[in-house]
Simulated assay, not measured.
Amino acid sequence: MLNLERLRTLDALARHGSVSGAAEGLHVTTSAVSQQMAKLEREVGQPLLAKYGRGVRLTDAGRLLAGHAARIISQVELAQADVEAQRGCAVGELRIGAFPTAMRGLLPDTLTGLRADHPELRVRVREMEPAESMAAVVRGDLDLALAIDWYNKRMPVPGELVRAHLLDDAADVAVPASHPLAGRTEISLAEFAEDDWVSWNEGQFCHEWLVFTLRGTGIEPRIAHIAEEHHTQLAFVEAGLGVCVTPRLGRGPVPAGVRLLPVCDTVRRHVYVVWRADADRRPSIRAAVDALRATAARIEGRAGRVG
Rank of each mutant, 00 (worst) to 15 (best):
W209V: 08
L261S: 01
D290W: 01
A182W: 05
G242P: 08
P119H: 07
Q86S: 11
L189A: 01
L26R: 08
R63Y: 10
Y272F: 15
P283S: 04
V28C: 10
V123I: 15
P176M: 07
D11A: 15
L181G: 03
A136N: 12
A14V: 00
L241H: 09
A291I: 02
A224D: 03
L111M: 03
V138G: 07
V137M: 07
R163E: 15
R305I: 12
R305D: 09
V83K: 10
A102P: 05
L64V: 08
R281S: 11
S133M: 01
P176C: 07
L121V: 12
D196W: 03
R15C: 00
A81E: 02
R281I: 04
D172E: 07
K51T: 07
R293C: 13
G97H: 04
H207T: 02
L65A: 10
R8M: 08
S18F: 04
D149Y: 00
A70R: 13
A61F: 11
N152T: 15
P156L: 06
S199R: 04
E5T: 09
Q46V: 15
D82F: 11
R95D: 05
G301F: 06
E24M: 11
G45C: 08
A256V: 02
Q35I: 14
L106K: 02
A256N: 06
D60M: 13
N201E: 13
V237M: 11
G301P: 02
S74W: 05
L166I: 08
P100Y: 01
G88M: 03
R302Q: 10
G53P: 08
S74E: 15
Q204F: 08
V271C: 09
A147N: 01
A38S: 13
A164V: 14
T59V: 07
A287Q: 04
H225L: 05
A190T: 09
R286A: 11
G301M: 02
D109Y: 05
H165G: 14
E24P: 02
L65R: 02
T101Q: 04
R184S: 08
R54A: 06
L94E: 08
G25S: 10
R163A: 13
P158T: 11
E5Y: 06
G92S: 14
S199K: 00
L144K: 09
